[in-house]
Every structure is written in C-alpha cells, then in structure tokens.
Write a protein that binds this DNA or RNA. Sequence first.
DNA 1: CTTGACGTGTTATGGTATTACATACATAGA
DNA 2: TCTATGTATGTAATACCATAACACGTCAAG
Lengths: 172, 172
Amino acid sequence: MAHDHASDCPACQEPAAAFARHDHAHCAQDVLERADGLVALSGARLTPVRRRVLEILLEEHRAMGAYDVLKRLAAEGYGNQPPVAYRALEFLVEQGLAHRVRRLNAFTACMHPGEAHAPAFLICRLCNTVAEAPAAAVREALDAAAGLLGFRVERSTVEALGLCPSCQEQAA
Amino acid sequence: MAHDHASDCPACQEPAAAFARHDHAHCAQDVLERADGLVALSGARLTPVRRRVLEILLEEHRAMGAYDVLKRLAAEGYGNQPPVAYRALEFLVEQGLAHRVRRLNAFTACMHPGEAHAPAFLICRLCNTVAEAPAAAVREALDAAAGLLGFRVERSTVEALGLCPSCQEQAA
DNA sequence: CTTGACGTGTTATGGTATTACATACATAGA
DNA sequence: TCTATGTATGTAATACCATAACACGTCAAG
C-alpha cells in the first residue's frame, strides 16, 4: 500500500489524489458501500452483475472499454455477449456510479458517488491516466452559455485532453 | 429563404440563430470563402475532396456521421472507402473548419472558422439539432479546474444534452 | 529526371454498440 | 399458494464506427 488508510482517508477522495499514487483498495471498498446505499435509496437494484462490474471498474481504477469489462465478466461465468456489459454499465452511469468517457469509448467508476457533481475528465495524452475533476464551476458556465440560446442542459460531457503533472515534468 | 441576406447578415453568425430557422446557403458561402483564406494561411491545401466535404457539412447543416459523408462523396465519384471520408474530416477538424461531436459519433461544420473559440455543443435530445455555442467562459472554468490538479489542458470536448427552445415549448 | 512529401484510392480488419428475441427471476395481488 | 407483471439476464445476429497497411499518382525541390 502506498499509504495507510483510515476509513476517512482523504487521499482517495481529494481531487489532488487523482494523479497521485495511492491504495485503491480502500477507495473501492468505501465507494461500494456507498453504492449499496445509494441504489437502495433510488429504488433500483444493484444485482450481482452490476455490482461486479462496479467492482471491476474500481479494481482496475482506469477507464475500461465495454469489451474489457465483458472479458472479465465472461471469465467469471457471466454472459459473454456485449449487451451484458453495456446494460450493466448503462445502469451504473444512470445511477451516477460510473461515468462514460467518450473520448476513449470507455467507462470509469465514479469516485464520488452521491455527491451531486458534474464531473470533468482530464485525460493525459501520454500516460492515458484519467482523472475526475470537480467541475461545478464548469457546469455553471455551460448552463449560462446554453441559457443564452434558450437551451436547457440536462446532461453534460466535459473532457479535456492534455498533460498530467508527472508527464509535464518528464516532457520538460 | 427564411430571411433575406446581406453579405454581413448577422443571423448566420449569431449564437441565437443556432436554433432559429434561417437560410443556410449564405452562411455556407461565407464560411467557404473564409475557409479558403484560412487554409492558405496555414500552408495547407483545401483539395477538392476536402472542400467538397466541407460543402456537404455546410449544406446539410447538421451533424453527420463519417459514413453519411462518404455516401455523398461516393455518389459524386470520389472514393467510397471509409478512409476517404475520415481523412478529409480529420483535416477539417485540424484546421478548425469542422468539429467532432463525440456524443453522436458525428461531425459538423464550424460556423465561426478562424475566430479562436472553444466551442460547446448543445444537442437537443428530441429533434437532434446541434448548436455550436460560444464557450470561452466554459473553457476558462475548465482550465482553472484542471490547473488545481496540475493538469494542463490542450484540447477540450464540451457537449450538452438537453432540450432546445422549440422542443421545450412543445414539451410544455 | 529523380527524389521525397503529400494526397488519394482500395483492401482488409478491428473495435464499438444496438436490436430483437428468449429465458429466468422477483415481487405483489388474487 | 398461484399467477400475473415487471424487471433482469442470456444469446444471436447485425449494424455502425474507425484504422492499418499498402499501392498509385502528382507535384515541387534539388
């Protein structure tokens, strides 16, 4: 482990940790527990496949293609046809437990489920790391820009391609 | 024509026109002329295929899939294999003459080529209209959010799904 | 006139996502 | 309990999106 976790370890939650090395096991556990509660609240069901997909996303701690997820599922005895993965992923996205990263045709676990947030994704073009940045301000600006045209925003996709801190150093 | 165009008709350029009915022919003409100049400046070449693809995007005035564009090209005697369309589209995107709308796996002509802009796309989930909104403020907010994590943004994708003005009315 | 850069055409393939239908499972109501 | 209903899963087939690799042609610089 990169650091010792108390149950409220901030490193897993803080934005700044997104690009830092740390122990994912704790974050995963914490997120899973919250997921159970959130889903129950919304009246939906976190079935075995769905829960497993979330676990997989949390374990890998990276953006995964639907077919990558599917391979893992199939290896564990679940169905091995694309809809199995896509349906579970879609469910998780709807519940706010995962996000879709369109630039990568991939999915990633949400690290802050339940907290109302309009995430932005920061994708490093060198190391391919994806970080979820808090982007309430971005969403506000987008709502404002859309409002000027009379458009009402329901869902938004905000993704940035660029260089993460460590790749900036190496490039310099 | 929905309205009579002077060569400096603002309706085609103004954001508010994005969702308004108007004559596209003039906008297209204007954009094409500017495209010629811009490409020349950058040392690139707006070859027949490339120019035709831009014309097609302008004519249709909607987000088009690469294969839609390809069909049009093929019907006019150009190559009918995917790379023909993808290469031309990629060129136009690089030159800032077109944009890629990832949510739709589609491309659309840029309505304000040459003006430095970080566009946001507003996609109506009912009528599928796509509008390009000025989003300098959004980009600034994104840069700021990324900066807090030490991430340097190079390119960004900002897309919103929601309801355009007229579909809001109909829904109400 | 040769070389090299660029653009186009074509074949082939790989990756992503959805439709449609069949089956199983859970829960609520008779 | 039994059945009806909605929801979830499994599967087959297909559609859609995108790229790699190679061949050919053109044009301008040396």
